[in-house]
């Protein structure tokens, strides 16, 4: 493991402040498999502990954790997809957890590349230009992603539910 660049206190403060947001992102990307979620969650905070980035403020720090959690989840999905394809032909069906309503399940069903932007925009309230900066994409791409995601969600739900 690389050297820790932050104090224990800094890490725990970030944990208290951002744990829920990171958890929601993990839930949005991953199945309700507790082990996967915990793994993604831990990896996100490990990355935070060793990263040297200076954050402008707490919002910047939180946004960084959200984007990092998304990336970690994608990595996990890629590796687990390979693993599962190799090992089994059929995945056991799980019942949806009780805290997931229809909208959340639809968000989960969105393509991976849309999810981070949807979360940052609709839940955390970031503008497209802010999301562009956070995710290193062009602003126009973010607008396109949000628009496509919204369209897909509309198809899955009735319009007034969004």
């Amino acid at each position: 493991m690389s050297a820790v660049r932050r104090t224990e206190e800094e890490i725990l403060t970030a944990y208290e402040r951002c744990a829920d947001a990171v958890y929601r992102v993990c839930r949005m990307f991953l199945t309700a498999d507790r082990a996967d979620i915990m793994d993604a969650f831990q990896q996100t905070f490990l990355k935070y502990m060793v990263c040297t980035k200076k954050f402008e403020n707490s919002e910047h720090e939180k946004a960084w954790l959200i984007v990092t959690a998304s990336n970690v989840c994608r990595d996990i999905l890629r590796s687990s997809w390979r693993k599962k394809v190799m090992l089994t032909d059929e995945l056991p069906q799980r019942a949806a957890p009780s805290d997931e309503d229809e909208i959340f399940r639809c968000v989960k069903a969105l393509p991976e590349k849309y999810k981070t932007a949807v979360y940052l925009h609709y839940y955390e309230g970031y503008s497209a230009s802010e999301i562009a900066k956070l995710t290193g994409r062009a602003e126009s791409t973010v607008y396109a992603v949000l628009s496509k995601a919204r369209k897909q969600l509309k198809q899955m739900l009735t319009e007034d539910e969004i």
Binding site: R34, E100, I103, Y123, I162
Partner: peptide, 18 residues
């Protein structure tokens, strides 16, 4: 019901958080 409300329902279980 909005996306925000849906996400609000997703709360990290206390045992997992601790």
């Amino acid at each position: 019901m909005s996306i925000k409300d849906s996400f609000d329902k997703i709360v990290m279980p206390e045992d997992m958080k601790n």
